[in-house]
Amino acid sequence: MTRPDAGFTDEQALEEQIQAHGLTAPRITPEQIDAQIVREDYHRFPDTTVTIALLTLRNGYAVTGESACVSSDNFNATLGRDIARRNAREKIWPLMGYALRDQQLRDSAKRRGHPH
C-alpha cells in the first residue's frame, strides 16, 4: 500500500543525491519501505487528539506510530493519521537496515566457506 507521505519529497531529494553521487552499494530505498506495508489500521482514542497508526508488514510484524496535539482546537483527523503513519513508517528503516546487514554477513560467510 503506497500512499503519498508528507516527508516523501525529502526522501526523493535524498535518493536523487545518492544516485547522483554514484553510490550503488546495497541499501534500503523508500520504495522498498513502502513495499513492505501490506495493511494500515488507525485508531483515535475517544475524547482525545491521540491517533495511533498500526502498519502491518509483509512478514506479519507490525509497527506503530502516534500523533497528538496539545489543543483540541488544532486537531485534524487527516493530519493526525498522516503524522501517525509517517512516525510508524520511520520505524521500518532500522528494521530493514538490520535485515540487509544480516543478509550481507550471511552472504559473506558463504563466500568464505563458513556456513553462518
Rank of each mutant, 00 (worst) to 15 (best):
V70L: 12
A84F: 04
A35F: 05
W93G: 00
N76S: 14
L105S: 13
Q19N: 15
G7S: 10
A109V: 03
A109T: 05
E16I: 06
Y42F: 15
A77F: 02
A99V: 02
G60M: 12
L105Q: 15
A99P: 02
G80A: 11
A35S: 15
A35R: 13
G60W: 11
E15Q: 14
I83W: 04
E31M: 09
A77L: 08
T48L: 05
R89F: 00
Q32H: 07
I33A: 02
A84E: 03
I33V: 15
I92H: 01
D102P: 00
R112Q: 10
A68T: 13
G97I: 01
H21L: 15
A13F: 09
Q32I: 04
T9G: 06
F75L: 05
A68S: 08
S72G: 07
M96T: 02
R27S: 07
E40I: 07
A84V: 06
L23T: 06
I92L: 03
D5Q: 10
V70E: 13
G7T: 10
I28A: 02
H114F: 14
H114V: 10
Q32A: 14
D82H: 10
G65M: 04
V63D: 03
G60C: 12
M1G: 05
L95Y: 00
E16S: 09
I37R: 03
D82A: 14
Y98C: 00
T2I: 10
E66T: 15
R3W: 09
D41E: 07
N76G: 10
G113T: 08
H116Q: 15
R39I: 00
Q17E: 12
P94Q: 01
